[in-house]
Amino acid sequence: MSRDPLNLLQGTVDLLVLKALTWGPQHGYAVSRWIRKRSEGALGLEEAGLYQALHRLDRKGWVSATWGLSENNRRARFYELTAEGRQQLRTESGTWRQYAAAVFRILDARQAEGSS
């Protein structure tokens, strides 16, 4: 990791966190590990930001938090998608896809428009 990881937009972190919770309640550490694994470390997500995102989503009511026991029997705070959060994930990922596609279309352009 010699290169500086990409700086992530706040909305993107939220989206990633919501996605990480799609398969059931997770504690913050599991969310962080999952994102690191899936992105193969490329996103360089700072945990501080991730936890802030989790609590922010809690406040918005997109996830709900409860204390439970982790796999190694420690008290951990588990986050679960709410119905509203699930809905939010669907629309946000749709928007993100369109956005990314648009960016790609520009990056993949071979020649200047209008010269054909």
Partner: peptide, 22 residues
């Protein structure tokens, strides 16, 4: 890796307080 610990705790606490009052 976690980043600025104390700052993060403060920020998270602030979020939680707002959540609580709502």
């Amino acid at each position: 890796e976690f980043g600025d610990l104390e700052h993060a705790k403060r920020m998270i606490g602030r979020q939680d307080r707002a959540t609580e009052s709502t």
